[in-house]
């Protein structure tokens, strides 16, 4: 199921566990699928110089980001025998413990989903213009850097 034009992968606020459960449910009609692999990014309450992260505020260069997500999708469908792929990323405030990234791939066979999911997550971390601002309990902040 290739899409020809970029979808909007952004959702305002955190991604709920209900949304994820429902997304899994919808795939139960696709009986050629044998394996699903799901990556979830969750905001960590990191302690940095004695202060604790309470939330991350996400902004993005949305048009370019959606275009990059689309290119990653297209490349992944070319490289891997995938039945479905879904990507969602939060914008705005996501509190510690909440989910900010949901990547979902499905295939007839398991080997494919492992390779594809890691490929997609690494590509989106490096290629997609999304910016996280780590908020501390005293309302100071620092800009997140991916490692």
């Amino acid at each position: 199921m290739k899409d020809k034009k970029p979808k909007n992968v952004f959702k305002e606020g955190p991604i709920s566990s209900d949304f994820i459960g429902n997304s899994i449910y919808k795939h139960q009609t696709k009986t050629s699928i044998g394996a699903h692999n799901i990556f979830l990014g969750q905001v960590r309450a990191d302690e940095i110089d004695g202060k604790t992260v309470t939330a991350i505020e996400y902004t993005a260069y949305e048009d370019m980001a959606n275009q990059k997500f689309h290119e990653i999708r297209e490349r992944a469908f070319e490289k891997f025998d995938l039945t479905c792929m879904h990507i969602y990323h939060s914008l705005g405030t996501v509190k510690a413990g909440e989910i900010c990234l949901f990547v979902f791939v499905s295939s007839p066979r398991r080997k494919v989903v492992f390779e594809a999911l890691e490929y997609i997550v690494e590509a989106l971390k490096s290629d997609v213009p999304v910016f996280g601002k780590e908020m501390f309990e005293d309302e100071s902040h620092q800009w997140k850097v991916n490692s």
């Binding site: 260069y61 213009p129 991916n146």
Partner: peptide, 25 residues
């Protein structure tokens, strides 16, 4: 115009963006 460029690239575009390190996910 939503594609990364270098300092040597010629200005052609309508839209330029200055992008700090990406930190999605």
């Amino acid at each position: 115009n939503q594609e990364l460029v270098t300092k040597e690239t010629v200005l052609t575009g309508q839209e330029i963006a200055l992008l700090p390190p990406f930190s999605g996910g």
